[in-house]
């Protein structure tokens, strides 16, 4: 049976991790390869690198980061942030990424999703959606890292992304992101039960119970988190044991 996935997310800026675990047993908390290896040992199912490098002159560093990570850590790696063209996606995949996550460019140019799916297969193409609740059962899509509101409904956009060839949705609740109050269960369920591709829930995770809730009630296929691994001493293994005891099928 397919396991539900637990996915740590690392923000990478100019080749250094700027959000991630600060456990003292790491020699260098800012080194993405070191952190990837740490999460690998903890039993993470996959890793997401979100490249938040703003300045163009440092943007190519991510390719080296991905290559060095893929040389040493034999687990799936998704990379998002700043992907605007098929060529950007190809360079990341050739560097060793297994999947690329497209957000702003996917909405501005949905044909990019189709082009990437044709070239690399749907299994390599993740569409990342940042959504904010506007009324009961309705969520609006934002781009540019949450700064620009679009006149687009999140559920409709998820369905279109699937139609265009996305193989997975990375769904972030902007309302919950950073709150550690738990995932937006209604949003996750609304999308996960409508699309026929896996959905990674993101935003708001603060404790093990939130993972259970988003798998059991949100019907998420995977759950992404950052700060729960960052500030608290909640290891992935502990979280997986907690989930397994409660009947969620996880890889242990």
């Amino acid at each position: 049976m397919l396991a539900r996935r637990i996915i740590p997310c690392l923000d990478v800026k100019e080749g250094r991790v700027v959000k991630g675990t600060q456990f003292v047993n790491l020699r260098d908390a800012g080194d993405p390869v070191e952190q990837a290896r740490f999460y690998d040992e903890q039993g993470a199912d996959e890793l997401v690198f979100l490249d938040i490098t703003a300045s163009a002159e440092y943007r190519d560093i991510i390719y080296d980061v991905v290559a060095h990570t893929a040389e040493q850590v034999f687990m799936p790696l998704t990379v998002g942030g700043g992907i605007r063209t098929v060529a950007d996606a190809r360079k990341l995949l050739q560097s060793g990424a297994d999947k690329i996550a497209i957000n702003t460019a996917a909405l501005q140019e949905p044909e990019l999703v189709a082009a990437c799916a044709r070239q690399f297969g749907s299994q390599a193409v993740v569409v990342a959606i940042d959504a904010r609740r506007i009324s009961a059962g309705r969520w609006q899509v934002f781009i540019h890292g949450g700064r620009t509101a679009m006149d687009v409904d999140a559920v409709q956009w998820a369905l279109e992304a699937e139609h265009r060839g996305a193989g997975e949705i990375l769904l972030t609740s902007m309302d919950r992101d950073g709150t550690r109050d738990g995932y937006d269960i209604d949003l996750t369920r609304a999308i996960s039960t409508r699309v026929n591709i896996p959905v990674i829930a993101s935003g708001g995770c603060g404790e093990a119970a939130h993972f259970f809730d988003v798998f059991e009630n949100g019907k998420a296929d995977a759950a992404l988190a950052a700060s729960v691994f960052h500030y608290r001493h909640n290891s992935i293994a502990e979280i997986k044991n907690y989930l397994k005891e409660r009947g969620i099928h996880v890889r242990i």
Partner: peptide, 30 residues
């Protein structure tokens, strides 16, 4: 679809390819 993530394999017959692989071992599918 895709079948994406970690799933267990069920051996149907013995094979040198799976020598030493634990029962119900997980592998990554995409």
């Amino acid at each position: 679809v895709p079948h994406l993530g970690w799933n267990q394999i069920i051996p149907e017959k013995s094979s040198p390819l799976f020598r030493g692989v634990p029962e119900e071992a997980f592998f990554y599918f995409a």
